[in-house]
C-alpha cells in the first residue's frame, strides 16, 4: 500500500504577527515554527494505517522553503518512510488552488492508495487544499474526520458536524481524507526514532519543475483586525489585579451577589 501525508509548517499561533514589507502576508522573522496542528493528526493516522497493514510505504510531502525540512524530519521521526520536499520560497504567495496543483503534480503518477491531510492550516485556514487535491486526482475525499478505519480497500469514518453530531461515511480507495483535531493522539517522536529519521530519504524538488497552476485569488491587503474598542485591559501585580477584578465583578455583574 502506498500512503501520502501532506503537511504544512506554520508559526506557533501564540506568536505576535507583523505584516511583511510587501503587505501580502506575515513577516516570517522571529517566529517559532512547528507542524500545523491538524497535520499532526494526519501523520499519526497515516503511521497507524501503515502499522495496521504492515506492507506499506509512507511518504510525507511538504511545500515551502528549506526551513520546512525541520518539520518534515519530525514527521519522519513519527514514522513516515520518506520525505518529498517541494522547494518553494514563495509558497506563501500561492493560493489553495496553486498549492493543490503542486501536490497533484507530484502525486498523480505515483499511485497512492490513501492521502492524508489536515482539514485546514492554522495560519490560512481555508480548508480547501485537501479536497482540491482529491478532486483534481478524481478520487473521493472524506473531510473533517474524527474517526478513521480502513479494511479491504474501504475507508469507514466519522465526520464531525456542528453541535457534537457526527456523520457516518465511507468510500473506496484510492481516497483522500482530511483530519480534524482529536482524531487520535499524535505520538511524540522518541530519541532513537529521531536518530533514525536523520538517515531517511528527504528529497527536495524545485516547485518550478512541477509546473504549478497560477493562483486564482489575489491578496489586496493584510492587516491586523481593527480594535473595536472593546474591553478594559488590566496589567500589573497578580494580587492587585485580583482586587481590581473583584471590584469590577461586584459592580458590573451579579456573580458575587
Amino acid at each position: 500500500m502506498k500512503i501520502l501525508v501532506c503537511i504544512k509548517q506554520v508559526p506557533d499561533m501564540e506568536s505576535k504577527f507583523k505584516v511583511n514589507a510587501a503587505g501580502n502576508w506575515y513577516d516570517d522573522t522571529d517566529l517559532a515554527w512547528r507542524m500545523n496542528e491538524y497535520d499532526e493528526y494526519a501523520v499519526e493516522q497515516a503511521v497507524q494505517l501503515k502499522q495496521q497493514v504492515g506492507e506499506a510505504d509512507l511518504t510525507v510531502l511538504c511545500i515551502g522553503s528549506d526551513r520546512v525540512r525541520e518539520t518534515m524530519k519530525k514527521a519522519l521521526a513519527m514514522g513516515c518512510d520518506r520525505g518529498a520536499h517541494i522547494a518553494d520560497d514563495e509558497s506563501y504567495l500561492k493560493d489553495s488552488y496553486a498549492i493543490a496543483s503542486l501536490i497533484v503534480s507530484y502525486a498523480k503518477d505515483r499511485g497512492f492508495d490513501l492521502i492524508f491531510t489536515g482539514m485546514q492550516s492554522q495560519d490560512r485556514g481555508s480548508g480547501q487544499v485537501g479536497v482540491l487535491v482529491a478532486e483534481m486526482l478524481g478520487i473521493p475525499s472524506l473531510t473533517t474526520l474524527v474517526e478513521f478505519n480502513y479494511a479491504d480497500g474501504t475507508v469507514t469514518a466519522k465526520r464531525e458536524l456542528e453541535g457534537g453530531i457526527k456523520a457516518k461515511v465511507s468510500c473506496a480507495t484510492p481516497a483522500l481524507v482530511t483530519c480534524q483535531l482529536g482524531l487520535n493522539t499524535p505520538r511524540y517522536p522518541t530519541l532513537p526514532n529521531i536518530m533514525k529519521a536523520k538517515k531517511k530519504e528527504l528529497i527536495s524538488t524545485p516547485a518550478a519543475e512541477l509546473n504549478p497552476e497560477a493562483s486564482l485569488l489575489e491578496v489586496l491587503q493584510v492587516a491586523p483586525p481593527e480594535k473595536k474598542g472593546g474591553g478594559l485591559v488590566l496589567e500589573g501585580d497578580p494580587a492587585d489585579l485580583a482586587d481590581q477584578l473583584i471590584k469590577i465583578l461586584k459592580e458590573k455583574t451579579t456573580a458575587l451577589a
Binding site: 486564482l216 485569488l217 491578496v219 489586496l220 492587516a223 483586525p225
Partner: peptide, 20 residues
Amino acid sequence: GNLVVPSCNAKLRRQVKSTT
C-alpha cells in the same frame, strides 16, 4: 467591495479578490 478573511487565529485579516 472586497471580501475579508481571517488568518492566524484571527490575529490578521486578509482582503482578497477573485480573478475568476
